[in-house]
Design a protein around this nucleic acid. Structure first.
Lengths: 136, 136
DNA sequence: TTCCCTTTTTGTAACTATTACAATTTTATT
DNA sequence: AATAAAATTGTAATAGTTACAAAAAGGGAA
């Protein structure tokens, strides 16, 4: 019941669908898209609607329980790991990797940069991952 | 004829449409979307097709003459300023602002991070801009 | 339990952004 | 002027996302 308590800690009322989606996010650190999550969970919850996946992830993001990544212009991707870290998109295999965060700006909560109130930071890198680079 | 030579310097063959689009990008540092560019240029080039705007910006990005921003999940935005800088999206007014780049990682060209070959870096902030923050 | 109210989920349809593609137009070359 | 190559255009298709109303599920109070 890990996801159950995790959701509660973010003030999200647990439900079968919400727990399943959070379970998936916490178990699969591959930054899955809506479609991936939907297709994977359909097997267990045959009545699952894609709209629910959309609604639920939107809810998670609003409550800070997940991050939405826009590093891949094709699909929004989601990350259950909400601590400060960077992302790398491999142009060849399309996978998204976690990388250490190297920015001077580190505090996400309402820090003040010349009057700009920042509440969310993203650090995106694109290029080729070690495996794909070796294949070249 | 600034855009003309600018395009040539990126090995892009100039055309009426390409020059108009690059002119717009260089004159409007507001990170416009495809639609904004299309609607703005339609007045001058009534035959302009939205497909051309898509094709042209894709070409610009491939040649390094422009950047595609994915900070706003709704629309891709484009930036004629290709030097290293960060972007800030205001959640209230939706505008995108330039901010100084503060990352330790500074070299875009094929630097090597633990085997990850990076060729593009994005630093995105979200929150509220000074003007909108004052209105609250 | 049953009734009633609220929340969540679902499915369809609508909408929007983007891409594919073939036809047309323009440009460059001989 | 004729031809080939490149660029542009318009339409149609695709894909991702959202709106919305109906159905289902959950949660007290009588």
């Amino acid at each position: 019941m890990k996801s159950y308590d995790y959701l509660l800690s973010y003030n999200i009322k647990p439900s079968v669908q919400r727990i399943a989606i959070m379970d998936y996010l916490l178990a699969h650190k591959t930054h899955p898209s809506i479609d991936e999550i939907y297709l994977a969970l359909c097997k267990d919850i045959p009545t699952l609607s894609k709209t629910t996946v959309y609604n639920t992830l939107k809810l998670f993001v609003e409550h800070g329980a997940a991050l939405m990544l826009t590093i891949d212009e094709k699909n929004a991707c989601f990350d259950g790991e909400t601590s400060l870290h960077a992302h790398f998109l491999c142009r060849k295999c399309g996978k998204i990797f976690d990388l250490p965060y190297t920015n001077e700006v580190r505090q996400v909560n309402q820090i003040d940069m010349n009057g700009f109130k920042v509440d969310e930071i993203h650090q995106y890198y694109k290029g080729m991952c070690p495996v794909c680079a070796k294949e070249d």
